[in-house]
Design a protein around this nucleic acid. Sequence first.
DNA 1: TCAGTTATTTCGACTCCCGAAGTATACTGT
DNA 2: ACAGTATACTTCGGGAGTCGAAATAACTGA
Lengths: 161, 161
Amino acid sequence: MQSQLTNAVLRAIRRILRATDQRGRKLAAATNLTPSQLLVLQEIERRGETTPGAIAHNLHFGQATVTNIIDRLEAQNFVTRQRNERDKRQILLGITAGGLTAIRMSPDPLQQQFSAGFEDLSTWEQAMILAALERVCDLMGATDIDAAPLLDSGTIDRSPA
Amino acid sequence: MQSQLTNAVLRAIRRILRATDQRGRKLAAATNLTPSQLLVLQEIERRGETTPGAIAHNLHFGQATVTNIIDRLEAQNFVTRQRNERDKRQILLGITAGGLTAIRMSPDPLQQQFSAGFEDLSTWEQAMILAALERVCDLMGATDIDAAPLLDSGTIDRSPA
DNA sequence: TCAGTTATTTCGACTCCCGAAGTATACTGT
DNA sequence: ACAGTATACTTCGGGAGTCGAAATAACTGA
């Protein structure tokens, strides 16, 4: 049996999830970039010239999904596709000036939504919230997840042999 | 400029979101219930006989979305629809034995991961965590900004160039 | 050269989520 | 009693995400 408190906490977490999701949607409407698209775009920027397969692997998407997303990004002229001359099976992705701008203009939904209010809280309250959240992370076993910027970007090096 | 605390909190939240998302995907895929469906189903169980509207309101979904999800749940015989005799505009939702089993068999990923540890905490700590999370919810909900004004905030995660 | 592997795309199928329009029902003021 | 309005839900249409399976093209090893 679960305590009232446990359930309340779980519900609160879901609400946060939900709020973030909604925010992402609104943002997408405003900036022409959905969260997934932004993720892929950032990945391209981060890795420079890269391939769909590498992105799929890093973000844990299917190849088909990445193709799909890149289709949209390309349609908006945010990325370019170019066959690799060495290995003609591969496609090299490049980010355009427009794509860079798009990244710069697409604020992290979470921050956008959250920061303003948070900074107005008293320091002790901020600290309390942080402590609580970190506790939650521990409990969820989320500590091992790389929290960098939005993605779990880890060190998935594809050793080129 | 963002304080250390703010950034730490954001990181923590992202970790929670990511962890939730990942585990949700995994487990939901294994049990024939998507996260959204499970959410709705749980909501029905929690509230007993309830209506689509109430659920939509509670989970912050659109009515159409809820109808949609309930369609699927009904197709799997997890919920029943029944016109309210008092107010024939309303539909009363009920959960079936199958629905209950489904919930039992696909435990909320969060609960899985989370509950055991959480229940071991002292009551005051549980209460603190809940308070903090609810504060976060408030902060997120409070900002009901629309698209336009957020475009000027490109300097979010980086120092003002 | 031929078979097997690898990289990507295409295709088809779900789901999600939403807004707008539609339908049926209830309520309200006169 | 009866328009007019409000409420509850469904239907419709559409954009996006996600995936698996099959197709295509290209590289690689024997």
